[in-house]
Amino acid sequence: MKRVKLAEIAHARSGDKGDGSNVGLIAYSDRGFEILRDQVTIDRVKAHFAKICHGEVQRFEIPNLKALNFLLGDSLGGGGTESIKTDAQGKTHGMALLEMEVEVPLDFNR
């Protein structure tokens, strides 16, 4: 096994959802989706965003799109229109998630 960043096996987009954000995480392949499903757990995402997400993390599977959807509660400093944070709408949370590391087989290629 080797450790790679999620960016090697998946792409992502994020935006605001009330006072939290949503992050859609999409694998490039079926094999990649299995890795997302096994390793990108609620606990790992919560730990990854420990300094950003101060609420509950919810996780949904969308196998038909090889995707997971995460809701990061209380991650915007009060929500899109009220927040004074630079990223008041969670636009950068998708790119942030792609920095997380996962373990893949040595021969894994996207």
Partner: peptide
């Protein structure tokens, strides 16, 4: 890839995307 990213944009529960006209199941697409 570009369409999938937008499908998930501002998504809540993908099983129930509620509009005034219909409730959509995004896990079917």
């Amino acid at each position: 890839d570009t369409v999938s990213e937008q499908l998930l944009y501002e998504m809540g529960d993908p099983n129930d995307y509620i509009t005034p006209d219909v409730v959509v199941d995004f896990t079917s697409i």
